[in-house]
Amino acid sequence: MHSLYSEHRTWLHRVPAGTKLLALAALGTGLFWLQQWQALVACTVVCAALLVSLVPAARGAWRVMRSLLVAAVLIAAFHALWQQPLLGITSALRLLCTASLGTMLTLTTRHTDLLAVMERLLAPLSRWGLRPERMALQVALMLRFAEHFFVQWKRLDDAYRARSGRAGGWRLLAPLTIQMLSAARRVADALHLRLGP
């Protein structure tokens, strides 16, 4: 499972994760209230320049930015169709700015660092019986289960092929569901024994 994080060190890597998150929240809100298209064009230029300043780390961003560019063009075209081209341009530019800011944070911050910030932010939730400090365990468990879905599917498919000579297809849905739910129960029992109630 590849994160978008890039190991190429840039100037933004040195800024602490919490600061970057705070800046993103502030800038995102600011952009939301900004209405003049001239100001938004200026912001887009600044964002693009920032993104360029992060090359070679920004190479991985292309995949994300491509789908965002398509969305921006579609929004602009949609509003132009309804005779409001200016509204379309401002919405599209706002989308590009906020999304590229978010992408920059993701590119330059390890997800373990962001996890640590999130655990701190979510700490008040422990009053309602949630365990934010277990979030790292939860994320790891989630990725492991995702892999297990494929392993289990392959195993069931192999067994079905051995019996019938055909691919299992949708027939495997029922056994897969039951096996995954049972697997979750076994993991829960194991966690219960290791970590206590």
């Binding site: 365990r131 277990r134 365990l137 939860q138 468990l141 989630m142 990725l143 492991r144 289960f145 995702a146 297990h148 879905f149 995954m180 739910l181 697997a183 979750a184 129960r185 993991v187 829960a188 029992d189 966690l191 219960h192 970590l195 109630p197």
Partner: peptide, 14 residues
């Protein structure tokens, strides 16, 4: 709570 941990992770994985 352990069942919650495991099942929540399972469905996030789904």
């Amino acid at each position: 709570p352990r069942h919650t941990t495991a099942l929540v992770a399972l469905f996030a994985a789904l």
